[in-house]
Design a protein around this nucleic acid. Sequence first.
DNA 1: ATGATATTTGACACCGGTGTCATAATGTCA
DNA 2: TGACATTATGACACCGGTGTCAAATATCAT
Lengths: 341, 341
Amino acid sequence: MKTKGKATSFDIAHYAGVSQSTVSRALRNSPLVNEETRKKVWEIAKKLNYKVDKNASNLRTQQSATLAILLFEDPTGDESQINPFFLNMLGSITRACAKEGYDLLVSFQSISQDWRAEYEDSHRADGIILLGYGDYMDYQSRLQNLLAQNTKFVCWGAKVEGRPDLTVSCDNYGGGQLAAKHFISSNRNNCVFIGDASEHSPEFLTRFKGFKDTLDQHNITLTERSVANAISTEESGYHATHSLLANNVSFNALFAASDLIAIGAIKALKEAGLRVPEDVNVIGFDNIAAANYISPSLTTVQQNTTLAGQMLVQNLLALIKGEEITDTLLPPKLILRQSTS
Amino acid sequence: MKTKGKATSFDIAHYAGVSQSTVSRALRNSPLVNEETRKKVWEIAKKLNYKVDKNASNLRTQQSATLAILLFEDPTGDESQINPFFLNMLGSITRACAKEGYDLLVSFQSISQDWRAEYEDSHRADGIILLGYGDYMDYQSRLQNLLAQNTKFVCWGAKVEGRPDLTVSCDNYGGGQLAAKHFISSNRNNCVFIGDASEHSPEFLTRFKGFKDTLDQHNITLTERSVANAISTEESGYHATHSLLANNVSFNALFAASDLIAIGAIKALKEAGLRVPEDVNVIGFDNIAAANYISPSLTTVQQNTTLAGQMLVQNLLALIKGEEITDTLLPPKLILRQSTS
DNA sequence: ATGATATTTGACACCGGTGTCATAATGTCA
DNA sequence: TGACATTATGACACCGGTGTCAAATATCAT
């Protein structure tokens, strides 16, 4: 009972003494096939270690039971290092896909280059998940392009006015509120914000707005001097904080748009002889693993990556099925640690 | 010039006034086709936003230009958290695949459950990369199974006598040597090892051997009491170190089989009132991101994940091509930080 | 026994490409 | 001008499944 090369349904048909059509039906447990023959076919299939050829199957049925994920690198991302937050997301998305019986094709994309988003066009995937921070202004035309080709896709990240994509994102505004409220409740009224508060980083901007609005409501003003620009790297956070201090901005509470920024900020504060949390309270965003390891450990706004992965997959599948879906906002959670004890 | 659904090569043939065969050839830049018609076909293809149907193409050519990676979770792995070292490897493998023009299918596998390793059988992938620590004793029969089906695969991790797989791994023995030599050169002769020094964790065992052999060569003995068992988690490292201390084992140098273990160990040392590095020097293994963030920062044996990813992909592709390949050993590198300053 | 209905099966077209072979068009040389 | 090589193209089988339709067989009511 050995064949060279992989066994096909014809081989099974031959051994079972039935037609190939019947084999195909039997293997998919069609009710049209007799129980006895069904068993016989399954038995032989197992013996031959038969597996359905997905290429043939997908070709005929015009679907792939596969999703693709495009992971966009941070603009300044070093070649080898990937933002740990996105790696976590990747993990949870993989898990969510497996749970739904879908496979996942992963590809890294450079923001500047042309996207290799042909997975759906080439029938390799039924839909696409887009993941990454970055300068979303560039995206608009490309997204429009995807939309024009009737490609099914969902994006992770902030909803942007006028952008045509369906998104799943953390409630960044609410996250900013959480940070502000925590500072207020511990009487830390002299705040600064570090991160890109411009439309180039919609997530960061939204976090900033939630933070600032809440402070405003409590009659605490955040002057322009109290906001320093930074992208999501440790180095950038370090330099931004450094320049604030060099400008003699004084503060006792610092909200960073991401954990990596916060880590860099703490480094700068320490070097300037400031103690965390005694002199300055620090709150980050993301809750990456490092947040728990640095000293002092970092209070941060946690994004629920597990849930995020599930929602991305779930929404995408619904979209593929033709259902109406809406943007999803996930609740953030403040994780209290030493940096604001 | 609009069709509903995706355009096929027949559509192009229709508009170009040539046969479908010619279109197929033209799009693959076959020298058999006239330059003029080639241009015409490409033009129309672009206009129609045509993409080759990979399912049809793969079905016919019997290959997929895709690799699959099976990521095995740590036996005690919490559902949501993945060993950061493996996430890094995943990242570098993805990059290496992209560089070779291959796509990557990712799937998480539970060690205990049956593997879903049918990617090659079902023609979804041309080969498989296996990635994960774990109790390799279980693996043997499954690997034999893969081999019997003539599946092309490579494994990350230690070479184990009698196991039939081709591997790419860090020179764990050499890594252990590096750690020992460093301790010796700074006169830290009272050493302990934390990690599973049994055949259940071939990587850890090899690291241990390199460490111990080097100490032996310098007439430093590592008694049985100086070795504590731990799997690769922070908690496990913490408890193992704790029990060493509870047993009144005294030491001034600690080599942990992984960074996560080392992080847990440092925590236990601190709690016992011991200072790192003054009282105890600590060296880890892996160089995960956290190693740089903890306080004191962790001296560790770095595994070159970028190179590892490249070699895994490269070797697998060679294997698929039918070339003879051998196991690959990658050089480790000691990264000096505060924990052994 | 007969016609009607339900159950089970096989034959065959089809998905969208790729590769082989035959054929047509063009060019070359004796 | 005819024999032959070269170049470009089309016809067609094929990859390995899935879905439709018709046919064969079994079941049942009249």
